[in-house]
Amino acid sequence: MSPREIRLSTTPSPEALAELQLGDIVYLDGLMYTAREGVYKRALEDKANIPMELPAESATNFHCSPAARINADGTFTMGAVTATASFRFAKWLPEWLEKSGAKLVIGKGGMSSKDYKAYFVPNGAIYLSTVGYGTGALLGRGVESVEAVHWNEELGLAQAMWVIKCNRMGPFIVASDIEGRCLFERENERISQNLERIYEGTRPATLKRFGETDDKSDELIG
């Protein structure tokens, strides 16, 4: 069975968000911005003024650094775009979602259902995962234009806030729904049922490590 494909605005209505189910494939239209640790630190810890009207201009935060350059004439060349792992930003996301009004967070690997329930659901936000990883060239084709690059001098190209106009940009996968259910945890649970069998005929290491777990349903994130 092929997954369902849906076209969505980067400033989606609550109704459109409520429609989305785990595992749906989404293509986006509208403005999105990249923000990761550099932007979060500057906006939330250093209290710098966010150089965009959020969420009026965009309600979509992409955890991404593009393979891109700023040309000598001030124009931009954007090649491939791929997400970076989001769990590392859990420290800043609750405050960011509240402040920015972001409804879509796009990244790699998702967050835990605990995170979704704690601050995605109250803000009416969901998580979209990139596919692959990295369908960088496909996503690059969905970039109609680069509208601006903010904080490039302060943060460098990789951490700057890139504002991207998307035209059917995707594919993305719905990894959390409006009630905070988590696609990756659902899949982990299914896979875990097989793990005891696969570990038969192996033995734990003679020399242990501090903090080591033998519970294979544990995850590295969070």
Binding site: S2, P3, I25, C64, S65, P66, A67, G79, A80, V81, T82, A83, T84, V131, G132, Y133, G134, T135, G136, A137, L138, L139, G140, R141, P171
Partner: peptide, 25 residues
């Protein structure tokens, strides 16, 4: 299966457009 098919398409697009396969190079 969907992911692998998307990746196979991605490789073609990268070559056609002469852009990097993945944004994290």
């Amino acid at each position: 299966s969907f992911v692998l098919k998307a990746m196979l398409e991605n490789y073609e697009v990268a070559k056609q457009d002469r852009r990097a396969m993945c944004g994290d190079t």
